[in-house]
Every structure is written in C-alpha cells, then in structure tokens.
Design a protein around this nucleic acid. Structure first.
Lengths: 255, 255
DNA sequence: CGTAATTGTTCGATAAACGAACATCAAGCC
DNA sequence: GGCTTGATGTTCGTTTATCGAACAATTACG
C-alpha cells in the first residue's frame, strides 16, 4: 500500500498533519519546536498544523504548550464504530474472564503488529505494560499474532517475513523465519497458538482465530495468564475448550 | 478555539483530510462518491485523501470500496498514551466493579459531550448502546457530565449553556438552562451528581469529579445501574462512599 | 444493444502551503 | 540592570502542492 501511494495522487499536507498528530504519542504536552524536532517539519509548518488541530478541537494550547484533547478519540472511534460485531465480541470476552478469571482480548493484524480492538481485563495485572484498545504489540511474539499469521496465504506470509524485523523481546522470542514458520505450521496443525514467555517473561497466552471472516478483517481472541500460575498443558486442557467455544460464539454472531 | 482558527494560519488540507477520516464513523466501507457526499468535497479531492489514508496504512481499498484499518487506533492512542494516570484509573475502576458489581467509567469533557476514557463494565449490560473508550454522550444528560459542568467557572458554564442544544433524550432530560443550572447548584452543594433516566430510560448513575486536576484536564468517574435494581437513596448510601473513596485514590495517584 | 446516468480520473491553473528572514523571548554573564 | 547570544515563535512574498472542470470508464435501464 505504501508502494501504491507512489503512483497515485495523495495530499502531502494531510500526511504531514497526521505525523504531527502521531508525534504526541507517549507525551502529554509539546511545544512548536518539540513537534518540529519529532517530525522533521520546519517550525513554521509545525505551527500551522498545530493550530489546525486546535481549530478542529483536537488539541488545545496555552500559547506555548500544546496538548491533544479527548476529541482525538473520535478518530479511532471511526474505525471501531464500523465494526458492528464489536459489542458482541466484548460481551463474549467478558464472559470468558468471569468464567476463568483471566484477561481475555481480541486483536487484529496491522502491518507487523497486532492491534487490540477489545479487552476484558482480569483483576490482577500480568503484564508490566497495561494494554488498552489501540495498543500494539509485535505479531510474531504474541499468541493472537501467531494465530493470525498461521492463517495467512503463503505469499502474504512470505511478504510479512521479508519485511518483519522479528525482534527479540525475551530470550524465548522466535527471531528467525525458520523458527517462526515451524511454529506457524504447528499452530495450523493444532488449531490454536500457545505462546510462553516470547512476548514477556512470566506471560503465557493461548489464542485462536475467528473463522469465516473476510481475508482483510481477520480477528483473533486470547486468554493470558502468568506462566507461574498455569502450565502449558493445563492451559490447553482447561482454557482452550472455553476459548474455542467463545470463538464459535463470535463466529455465529456474525463476528 | 474554532473562532481562534480564523485568525491564525492553518492547513486546510489537513482539516479536509480529517473530515474524510471522520466520515467513516458508523460504517465499515465507503466509495469515493460516498465520501464525497458525506464531506461535501469533490470526488477528485475525496479520492486524493482516501489514497493518502491508504498510503499511511490507515485505510485499504479493493479498488472500489475503502475501509479504515486498525492502524487508525494509533491516532486515538496518541491521546491516551499521554495520560500517564490512565492505567491506575482503569485499575481503580475495576476494583469498583468487583466490589459493587456495576459498571464503572471515567470520562472527560470535550465540547458539549463527555468522552469515555476508561471503562470497567459489569457483566450485565444496562444501556441499549454499548459504550467503549472514545464513546461520546451529551454532557448535560450524563452524571459525569453534570459532575464536570458543576465545577466549571461561571463564564465557562455560560458559554457552554449558550451553545449547547440541551437535547431531550428522555422525558426526564433537563432541557432548559434554568433547570440545568439548578441541578448543577445541587451537584455542587452535595459533591456528587445523581442522574436518573435523563440519559436513558431505566438507567441511573452517580458521578463525582476528581479533585486537584488542572482546569483543562478534568476527569470524572461514575457508577451506573438499572434504576429498577437500586433506588436513588440506596445508590447514595451504598455506592457513593465507595465512589468517593475511588476518586480519592485516583487523586492521590497523581490522576 | 444503445442511451443516460453515475462513478472514477487526469492535468493545466490557481491559490494554499511553504520556509527564509525577521521579531520576540529567555538565559547567562558582567 | 544592561548587553549578548541562543532559542523560539511569526510573517508574508514565492513556490509548488492541491485544486476541480472536463474527460474517460463503468453501470444501469429500457
């Protein structure tokens, strides 16, 4: 798609503006010069885009510092509100959490990452970084990522592997194409992805993909737990049946 | 802020692009002509912006229909990730839900709406429309909205009332400035906002705002229940103490 | 099949966006 | 306090990015 953009007319100022919006990631407040540094735009350009965001109600300024407003969430909401099945997915995930006492999530693939689209957290946090809708994690190291990659057509998967860094997050992360391909073959054979300590030390999760969805709207759901609390065998034995039942419910709901 | 934009240099193409992005709200898939109709842009302009979104990985197309991708969530995430206190807020809301068995939420004001920034849903859904982070509701009819409006400075509140439609969502909604002002005075005097069936028939909720936050970063939390399950008096007696305790925890956490 | 309407696209013209230069502010030193 | 230097914010003539009218392609209907 990025290659495609080379041949078709686009609006460069829109891209630049989006870069300005993204430059707020992780920080609350930025000056014109901060944004200029983060985006590579001139201060004059950064200023114009920031004032545009303010004019749209997406940012505010005290004259020196700029902050995004909650109105920005409306942009993400444009995507979520187009997914009519998402309410049902949330309810089903919540049932899972009540039943099992562990966090349940749904994610889709975007580039080399999974993106969380729904979450039902358990009371006890198990990852060092809190996850929310919109959070991204490297697909190769995440159970939902592997479940979705396993379903990709061969050419698509090759393209993914050619361009994905396969970064090591822990000593357990699969960082070679051969290792990941072997794992994905196993995922395909078993019908689920089980990931232990590849994403984070102490984290184990199991995922399945939702069948019957269009190729460009794939979705996976998972359950995560601390690896000290449950063995792989036990996760398969006690979590997997319920997870597959939930997946079936999502599928039957038109999800 | 919108008036301010008249005097300052902005990038009109960025605004137009954002309008294209927003035009996907509520639908999954749009053609060039659909977007043109929804935004008032020419088909040629709509096409350029759509292809820009595709080039940024925020949309994809089969050559005819365009859909947003999950990458759009990254834009909303730019706002959420700048709120360092949000993880703690989520945890605290979840404690509330576990304790009481009802949905707990946090929201901020944006224009005439509240915008949900965190949610801990109860198992039983109580509103006809599911809420998620990024969901917006009219502030005047929502308990968190009233809690936040009650804390506004006089001039600010007057400006809000001058421009807000005060739309009736139910026969109980407060739709006159006088009625709303009277309610807000009561909210101020009591220290909490109690809203019954003003937002939706069958829905009762109680909210408090978080003290000690900067004027432009106000936050409120609430508990919602079916009005048939709990009376106003009982909500005040059993929910309010816990809600205020949670608010205190949020405040002390730097939230 | 032929016609009309609708939808998607091209490219010369225009005006929107650009950034170099200027103005203002802040910090440090005497 | 005054002066100098460096950093930050802004202005406006110039440039080029974006524009939409007109054309091409596709679809729908009789």
């Amino acid at each position: 798609m990025r290659a495609m953009a080379q041949k078709l007319e686009t609006v460069e100022s829109f891209s630049r503006g989006l870069a300005v919006l993204r430059s707020f990631g992780g920080v609350r407040s930025l000056t014109i010069t901060d944004v200029s540094d983060r985006t590579g735009l001139t201060r004059a350009a950064a200023r114009r885009f920031l004032y545009t965001l303010c004019g749209e109600g997406l940012a505010r300024t005290d004259g020196k510092n700029f902050e995004l407003t909650a109105g920005v969430l409306e942009l993400g909401h444009a995507y979520l509100s187009g997914m009519s099945e998402l309410e049902t997915v949330r309810d089903i995930l919540q049932d899972l959490t009540l039943e099992i006492g562990e966090s349940a999530s749904a994610a889709t693939l975007d580039g080399h990452d999974i993106v969380y689209v729904a979450r039902s957290p358990a009371r006890h946090r198990i990852m060092t970084v809190g996850l929310a809708v919109g959070s991204r994690l490297p697909a190769h190291a995440a159970s939902m990522g592997q479940a979705l990659l396993a379903r990709m057509h061969h050419n698509e998967l090759e393209a993914f592997l050619q361009t994905s860094p396969l970064r090591a997050l822990t000593p357990q992360t699969l960082t070679t194409r051969a290792a990941l391909k072997e794992r994905l073959a196993l995922v395909r054979a078993r019908g689920y992805a089980l990931v232990s300590e590849e994403l984070e030390i102490g984290l184990r999760s199991i995922a399945v993909s939702i069948e019957g969805r269009p190729r460009n709207a794939t979705l996976a759901i998972n359950l995560s737990a601390q690896s000290a609390r449950i063995s792989e065998a036990e996760m398969v034995e006690t979590y997997l049946p319920r997870l597959m039942h939930a997946a079936r419910r999502v599928q039957l709901s038109g999800g």
